[in-house]
Amino acid sequence: MSQNRRDFLKTFAAIGTTAATLTAVSPKVAKASSRGELSVDRNGVLVDTTTCIGCGKCEWACKTAHHIEPGNIEDYSTKLTDGSQRRPSEDALTVVNQIDKSVMNSDKVKLQCMHCDHPACVSACIVGAIKKQENGAVTWDTDVCIGCRYCMIACPFQIPAFEYHKALDPKIAKCDFCYDRTQEGKLPACAEICPVGALTYGTREELVIEAKRRIEKNPEKYHDHVFGEHEVGGTSWLYLAENSLVETVFPKLGTNPAPGVSESIQHGLFAYFVPPVALYALLGGVMWLSKTKENEGGH
């Protein structure tokens, strides 16, 4: 019996050590993923859905920029008018939908990755393939990606798509905020082509101010809310619309970052290394006490 207890304690101690080792690494990983320092100059796009005319040029430009066969450029405006509510997919990284087809000129909403400030996909990725870049883009490394699709489940906007049709080497696909283009000083392909300038590219900080200025200047034109300013801790893509987009386009989301729940447990467990040390101390104490008792028993 006493032997058993000693074994048990040894195992427990071993687990404790492992946990302690993990703790030393974990906070750094977590910090780098979603709670990292956000650059003040990180960029975003302000989508003014009231300006959008639904020509679909952004969809065409996106495909062209990402080497997806775009088809006829003339066909794009018709895709909007069939009233279907499309979702971004592996061969259309962005789509524009008219929400209420019965109302002419009602809001047309462009969907793509929102490039969250605290991305759930980054937090969920078990191999650290996804990264929040300094310029605001959430990008991923296909060479590192193992195709587990955790990011698809984690995303509060259900954006990442997967090349299910490919038997060999299927990949995750989503808007990459035209990371290569923006690094060259170009605009994202969609913002570059938009004929009416419904997509304004700039620093997120300025865009929030601009969005609020527009609402203030035209209170009867806009619903008084900048979607993305606070949702899931803030997104790089911000939306202005005539009517609320919550529950018609986007799910009702809180203002806490999506990885908040999982990370708060994870971070809470290892915060400042106190809980592990405390646990270790407790275990040490238990060991010490039991050892004393054992010694006493032996005498």
């Binding site: 639904g54 020509c55 040029k57 018709t78 004929p195 009416v196």
Partner: peptide, 20 residues
């Protein structure tokens, strides 16, 4: 943008599709 908004502000009100 300015040109297109100026045109489309009116044209989109009766043209079903925004055909370029």
């Amino acid at each position: 943008s300015a040109y297109h908004r100026q045109c489309m502000d009116c044209h989109s009100k009766w043209e079903e599709e925004s055909k370029c």
